[in-house]
Design a protein around this nucleic acid. Sequence first.
DNA 1: CAAATATAATAGTAATACTATCATTTAATA
DNA 2: TATTAAATGATAGTATTACTATTATATTTG
Lengths: 224, 224
Amino acid sequence: MHNLLSNLRVDINSSLYLKDPESSLLGINIVKSSIDLIDAHGIEEFNFKKLAKEIGSTESSIYRYFENKHRLLLYISSLYWGIMEFQMVVQTNNVSDGLEKLLKAVETLFSTPQTKCTSFEIEGQKLRHILNSEFVKAYHHKFVDEENEAGCFSIYKRLVSRLSEMIVEVNSDYSFCKSLASVITEGSLNQYFLSEHFHNLTDCHSKDNLYLFYKDLLTKTLMS
Amino acid sequence: MHNLLSNLRVDINSSLYLKDPESSLLGINIVKSSIDLIDAHGIEEFNFKKLAKEIGSTESSIYRYFENKHRLLLYISSLYWGIMEFQMVVQTNNVSDGLEKLLKAVETLFSTPQTKCTSFEIEGQKLRHILNSEFVKAYHHKFVDEENEAGCFSIYKRLVSRLSEMIVEVNSDYSFCKSLASVITEGSLNQYFLSEHFHNLTDCHSKDNLYLFYKDLLTKTLMS
DNA sequence: CAAATATAATAGTAATACTATCATTTAATA
DNA sequence: TATTAAATGATAGTATTACTATTATATTTG
């Protein structure tokens, strides 16, 4: 906890970039504007040419920071999960009751990321919206295994593991802690997506309802 | 039930194709070989040029059947969900007990599609593997709303609705029937994906374990 | 057999996702 | 302050993709 708080920057695996975007103004602009553009038009419509135009730079300059737009999406995703993990740790710290701690963590997972703890002036809502729509594409592709090997998903996996450990703490006899943790973490993105695009496939159209759904699920699954 | 059995063909929304692939040998080859190629190399590596070469035809001929590879993926997805829906209806027919019926439906959802009831000689395992890896990309994109409007996801949505109704039958007081149904349906693809690529994010590495996970989840959530 | 339809062959286009090269600006250091 | 190094910009070019268009040749149907 102390470590995390004193080192406010989310530490992103260096395999995700060629040059650390936090190290220069151009890098910061690349990340900031890519979030604006991807949020507005989606990852398919987004490319480095458009981004270069947006920030008044060139494609070649952007390619010095990120190998391609896929890696940039992975970077943005790690930023999101890093913030969420940070908030989760802060929110659950000093909560002694296991179930209360778990529910606090889940509540955090469904909240908007607080971007103040980054080098970038970005809007949390945009970041969440990108993740809701695009994160699944960041790992459903041909190179997932080698990127996973290289640590591209380490923050995400660590967050799911933390959640899983909280579940163990609540009920050590439960056999499916990891699966339950991953179902909830995915739900924290996908249920929002459903509410937006497949309205009739979910009952949860607000953060509060989502929390109630998973609170009910967790309580009954782990406490009965 | 009777309707479904007597009309064995999965009825696929005509907005998904330009010319019905079931209406000719070429069409059948397009679908069959596209499943082989997408299963083997993923949707990103797949294109109509490669497919044309594989079946000894031309790009222009394929374009007469499908507007683009995205629509072809939607077609393949509908084929999968149509088969699953069919199996689900068959398996749950005549089961009077609500919970037993629901669990039977869920078990079906995690099984391999039986492709005998289609015009195509395709391997169910390949079809499942494609869905596990690619289905999320079929609806996480810019045109999801208009495609949804056009009925491109109607079979999928109908299946989730059926599941949701079974949940209502088990416990009509439960407030999150739709969300639970969609969580399970997504899990029927994604948990397999996790097992293959993010082994440590799930406890379920077999069909049986997956069933036990969701059986436990459903029983506790709806019966306590 | 004629007419319609389906398929094949070929060519071409705009956009994408890069790579390469060299010039210029900015920053670091001696 | 001069020198050097590093970062960025400007420009050009390539292979691939995702199509569209046109015309020729089969194949089917009336």
